[in-house]
Design a protein around this nucleic acid. Structure first.
Length: 294
DNA sequence: AATTCGGGGGT
DNA sequence: ACCCCAGAATT
C-alpha cells in the first residue's frame, strides 16, 4: 500500500509551492489554516502574497487586524484570519518564537484543530501522526469500508485507529505517506467522478470490488441565498473595500444596506451587524460609524 | 452530534 | 440549482 501510493505520488503530484522543502513551519501552518474548507487554487495566490508581507509569526503578530482582514480578502470564514493573527501572537511569545512541533502544543493554538495540528506536525516536523482530512477519509472509507463517502461528522475512533495502523515506522515516511494519500484523494479518488482506472490501489479497493455502490442521499447542506453568512460576507466586503481604498469608515446606513438581502426578514440585517461586532470582525466608534477592527 | 461560520467554481 | 472544498469552535 505504502509503495504503491508513494510511487504514484512521485509521478503524479501537483507541483505546489507550499510543498517546497524550504517552506517554514509557520508558512505551512498559515497555508493549512487558509485551506480549511477552501480549495487550494484559491488559497495559493493569497498565501504567497501573505508570506511575502508577514514571513514570520512575529511579523503577523505586529500587524493590525484590519490589514489582516483586508489581506485575507475573500477567502471566506474571516474569523479564521483573526484566529491566525491570535495564533501568531501566541507563538511570538514562545521561546524563539517557534512553531511548536508536537500535537498537544499545536492543539492549544487558536484556530488549530485536529487536522491542522496533524498536518503541521507531520509535514513540517515529520512526527509520526496520521492526517485525516476530507480526502484521506474518503480514500480510506472506500478502500476499507467499501462505502462511497466518509461520514459527515468528525473522524470516529475506528477511523483514527485505522489511520494509525497504516502509518510507517519512521516520521519521514509518515510525512510522505500522508501527503501522498491526500493527493491521491484530491486527484484520483475524488468526490464526484473517481478515476479508478488510474488508481494505484484499485486492486485492493473494496468499494470498487463491490461495484461502486452509491451511498444513501445525503441531507442537504445549508442554503446560501438569503443566509446570515451571505449578509455577513457583504458587510465584510464593504468594509474591506473601504479600508483598502482610503482607510475610511462607513455610516450605519450603508452597513445595514449591505447586510440587507432581497426577500430577507427585516430584522436580519440588524442582527447580522450586531453579530459581526460581537465576533470582533467589525467595530463601531463613538460616532456610530463602522470599520474593521484596529 | 448538530450548527454555524464564506465564497466561488464545477456539474 | 446544487455540490463541495487539505475544518474549527461552540452549543
Amino acid at each position: 500500500m505504502f509503495d504503491a501510493v508513494t510511487t504514484w505520488y512521485r509521478h503524479n503530484r501537483r507541483d505546489l509551492p507550499m510543498r517546497s522543502d524550504h517552506v517554514s513551519p509557520w508558512a505551512t501552518l498559515v497555508f493549512e489554516v487558509m485551506s480549511q474548507q477552501t480549495p487550494i487554487p484559491r488559497v495559493q495566490p493569497i498565501w504567497e502574497r501573505w508570506m511575502e508581507r508577514w514571513p514570520t509569526p512575529v511579523d503577523l503578530a505586529r500587524a493590525r487586524r484590519s490589514d489582516v482582514l483586508v489581506a485575507w480578502d475573500h477567502l471566506g470564514y474571516p474569523s479564521r484570519a483573526l484566529r491566525l493573527h491570535a495564533c501568531a501572537q501566541v507563538i511570538a511569545n514562545r521561546p524563539g518564537s517557534r512553531v511548536p512541533a508536537d500535537m498537544d502544543a499545536l492543539l492549544e493554538l487558536p484556530g488549530i484543530g485536529p487536522y491542522t495540528a496533524s498536518a503541521v506536525a507531520s509535514f513540517s516536523f515529520h512526527q509520526r501522526v496520521p492526517v485525516l482530512d476530507t480526502n484521506i477519509r474518503r480514500v480510506l472509507t472506500r478502500v476499507f469500508d467499501g462505502r462511497q463517502f466518509a461520514r459527515k461528522s468528525a473522524p470516529s475512533r475506528a477511523e483514527q485507529n485505522r489511520a494509525w495502523s497504516l502509518l510507517p515506522d519512521e516520521g519521514d515516511a509518515c510525512a510522505l505517506w500522508n501527503v501522498a494519500i491526500m493527493e491521491l484523494g484530491a486527484l484520483v479518488c475524488t468526490q464526484r467522478a473517481p478515476l479508478c482506472d488510474q488508481c494505484p490501489i484499485s486492486e485492493r479497493c473494496r468499494w470498487l470490488a463491490d461495484g461502486q455502490p452509491a451511498d444513501a442521499v445525503k441531507p442537504r447542506g445549508q442554503a446560501w441565498a438569503g443566509t446570515d453568512r451571505q449578509a455577513r460576507g457583504r458587510v465584510m466586503a464593504l468594509l474591506r473595500d473601504a479600508h483598502a481604498s482610503s482607510a475610511e469608515r462607513v455610516g450605519r446606513d450603508a452597513v445595514i444596506e449591505a447586510a440587507t438581502l432581497p426577500g430577507a426578514p427585516a430584522d436580519q440585517a440588524v442582527q447580522v451587524v450586531d453579530a459581526l461586532v460581537n465576533d470582533g470582525l467589525i467595530e463601531v466608534d463613538r460616532r456610530g460609524t463602522y470599520g474593521l477592527p484596529d
